[in-house]
Design a protein around this nucleic acid. Structure first.
Lengths: 352, 352
DNA sequence: GGTATAAACGGACAGCTGTCCGAGAAAAAG
DNA sequence: CTTTTTCTCGGACAGCTGTCCGTTTATACC
């Protein structure tokens, strides 16, 4: 369509100038109304408000920001939008930020794409960036260095052990320790690890918690734990758990309790054992991790660990927003969230 | 901190001017490099590129847009971030849009908040808005009218029957008809409806499909279907299904097949029946809707209906992006997606 | 070393906003 | 009707970008 002449009403109202023409006032007058400045006749104010309600006109946020207004946008990097716990964090973070007046720019960050994503956030002059999930270590560290160079605050959720990164991380060791102690109390002494590596990587990793709980009872982790992860392609899903269970069924001196890396694996394993004719928790116990909705939907319901997502996200938001305006803290802040054991029907005493 | 003097290097590089000072070139020269204009010495180009890589500087996207560059942002209104199917749509939509060079601005749109959300999108001059999920009818219609007034394209996903709204909707009637026909083939003649209302609202609603399938076999929907929804607080979740099942167990002339509104309800019902000592599918059949991951995790696995989320989202993106630039089509476009029956172990022949 | 050419410089402008300010118009007061 | 007060008008500016263009400086050629 041809561009409308200055005198005509434009096809769409895109600027304050357009809007002022539509109302029949000067642009500056309209602007004063919009910004609540004094010295205006009530009648004029009403006229503008009415047109505002009718047309739904909004000043160009980009121009506002150019004038110095805050963007009130937070960039969120998520590793993918398929992992339920990550999604729950995302959803809650969005809510928390929204409540504090920020809008969320969400981008999925596949390996290698982090650079572009963060650049995009920077170009939009977001006020902070949150990383949720696990990323390549070098990549995320490079991103954070870039953010620091621009004075942009950041928080990393659930990726522990990064240098110079403000982090909120779940103490998975504490969660696993609680699970193991619960099972020890029930008399279990041999544990099958499903997707949980044997060697601890950091002080808050799952294997650390398993070992700590066992050592606390003067038990040797090496002899008390068994893993068959190497037998199957590792996928961390339902089917992986089921295949692991099938392998464990035939094992001589089979463990009596099975610790799943997550709920999917645990439920898969539970299913696998049931298909082999074993009963849970009569013949063996199974535990998960994350406390997803599905834990309540299986039979038996699953004993699992609740991440305390709310606490995690609250801490992350607080940590991020505390950096706004202030110069960045010299040393990285690390906050740890302690999860909570959730008892289900899938754990029971060792059959004597 | 005090504002740096013009001559000094600024604390952070925020503008092309800052960046040019940092490199030691004129702002215009840098700008020419950034935009690939000819007539520049290779040495100069390299110098700028190097500094660019080192500092990670990005031109202010807001200023770019002010100069006429597209924002490449799509606003997405989602009813909540808890419903798994809605989340899957969101995740895939994000991916599809990203592949076409758009970034997604995601906002949760609780009843009554739609106005602010859409205003916010408008103020950011998004190029289009997608609504995912179910909203209050008047509210979403008002929002769409506002968008039209500004020439902003839109697409509504999964909210059928709106006037003047471009829509992509799942033909739930076809899905339910497929389910019912499958069960009819297995010999079932009495159907328990779990969370599915009896009266159809639109031609693609679930009850419509149930009735159509029954009438297709000369059966009377009124006598073939039973619902006990009124006995329980309606929540559309696992527990609702379980409570419904408990009520059905005691019912004289109990149906032999149960149709769940969604997978959660179906799995809850399945669990409820199992707790009452009934076996699925030997004693009765159960079906869900949505084909969520959990359907494969229950025992027996659930017969359900796949939404064809990929097709839905592709259609939505296509419909939205087709409107870009062009004047808005006078008549609303409605595209219907036909879902697909997914057989599980929860359905079987009527026990003779 | 002188000149022709290539390249960088730097001022100006538009795009949209909010704010300031002097000038002009409308309303109120006398 | 005149004077005073109260509003509105409209031009200017900054904020950041890309582009244009005339000017100055650096490079290359002879």
């Amino acid at each position: 369509m041809p561009p409308p002449r200055k005198s005509e009403a434009p096809a769409f109202i895109r600027s304050t100038a357009d809007f002022a023409r539509h109302v029949g006032l000067a642009r500056t007058t309209v602007s004063r109304v919009l910004n609540g400045q004094p010295g205006l006749k009530q009648k004029t104010i009403d006229r503008v408000q009415k047109a505002l309600a009718e047309t739904g006109f909004t000043p160009n946020a980009h121009a506002l920001h150019l004038k110095g207004k805050r963007t009130s946008m937070i960039g969120i990097c998520v590793e993918d939008l398929a992992t339920p716990p990550a999604l729950r964090k995302l959803a809650m973070l969005q809510r928390v930020l929204r409540a504090r007046g920020f809008s969320s720019l969400i981008e999925v960050c596949t390996p290698g794409a982090g650079r572009d994503v963060v650049r995009h956030f920077q170009s939009l002059r977001v006020e902070g960036v949150v990383f949720i999930g696990h990323f390549l270590r070098e990549e995320i560290e490079a991103r954070i260095a870039e953010l620091n160079a621009h004075g942009t605050p950041h928080v990393v959720v659930d990726h522990f052990g990064l240098r110079n990164a403000h982090t909120v991380a779940l103490d998975r060791a504490a969660g696993m320790a609680a699970v193991v102690e619960h099972l020890l109390d029930l008399g279990h002494r041999r544990f099958g690890l499903l997707g949980i590596g044997k060697g601890p990587v950091s002080r808050i990793d799952r294997p650390t918690g398993v070992q700590a709980a066992l050592r606390g009872r003067r038990l040797d982790p090496a002899t008390c734990t068994v893993t068959l992860d190497h037998l199957h392609e590792r996928k961390n899903d339902f089917d992986f758990g089921r295949r692991l269970a099938a392998s464990f069924v035939a094992l001589p001196d089979r463990p009596t309790a099975f610790l799943g890396l997550n709920d999917e694996i645990a439920i898969g394993a539970q299913r696998g054992f049931q298909e082999a004719g074993l009963r849970v928790p009569r013949d063996l116990s199974v535990t998960g991790f994350n406390n997803q909705d599905i834990c309540q939907m299986t039979s038996p319901t699953l004993t699992t660990v609740d991440q305390g997502i709310e606490a995690t996200v609250e801490a992350a938001a607080e940590l991020l927003l505390a950096q706004l305006g202030k110069p960045l803290p010299a040393r990285p802040v690390v906050r740890t969230i302690v999860p909570r054991l959730v008892l289900g029907e899938s754990t029971g005493p060792v059959r004597g």
